[in-house]
Amino acid sequence: MADTGLDKSLVPAHRYPGRLARMWDSDFVFNFRKSPIAIVAAVVTLVLILSAIFAPWIAPHEPFNPATWDIMSGNSRPMVPNEFTGKVFLMGTDEQGRDIFSTILYGMRISLFIGFSAVIFAMILGITLGLLAGYVGGWTETIIMRMADIQLTLPSILVAMLIFGVAKTLIPFEYQDRVTMWVLILAIGLSDWVQFARVVRGTTLVEKNKEYVQAARLIGRGPGAIMLYHILPNVLNPVLVIATISLALAIIAEATLSFLGVGMSPTQPSLGTLISQGQQYLLSGDWWILVFPAATLLALALSVNLLGDWLRDALNPRLR
């Protein structure tokens, strides 16, 4: 400090911290560091997502290749050597000798893929329509918001089932298995855009009359640029919160649809399909076929929900 030749009293007592250090010190991160629940939820979410992504490398078996099934090891209890083959399975096996742990990893992969895709679809649709409704106003706004109202009178699960039912007739039978996943993404995404659109429209209505937006308009920026660079950043916080909570909802919705038999088929099971199958074994005492997929689904949905809950409180200091 002496080398700079500056009068020491003129230099602020603490050095101006770097970007990372400032982020570390920000209220947001501080809040996170001080919240054990948020940390645990984040870790669990991360571990589950990573193990879904790397399922092919982690899973001890290939659950969907019948050649690898070991009927002899069927109905093995978790962590107990099988009475015929002596093999040990972390979470047991089902009737056909499929390793439950591996099916869960692959099932989670499908559940998470559908969940993320549906939320991204809903988010893009909702943000676009919300920005348009709020910024353009007039008839555009009326039509979009009435659509949202009507959408709200139809519960998401019903919309998803109807889309699924309709798609089933429109798509030839032999393609159905392949496109089921995309139909689910479309169905769940379409039933979820209203939340995003409403929040984005609300914020847009407030922001578009502020002076900085008028200034941007005065210097000749087009509506597209204004929406993208000036209004959109204002809605990111609430959108992030809604997206997180929507992810949990989408995963649950997918599981529910699969449970009701209008989702992923047993040949390509998601967590919901696995639970639906496992339910049949509950009465015969093979609890692990139901309990482990169910616990995974709960852990996934709960940790995402906890993160969403924490995010909402952290990004909305008024409520603290």
Partner: peptide, 14 residues
């Protein structure tokens, strides 16, 4: 309540 929201209805039922 968060656990309640995170458990799908069908699982609660089962």
């Amino acid at each position: 309540s968060l656990i309640g929201v995170s458990l799908p209805t069908f699982l609660i039922g089962i």
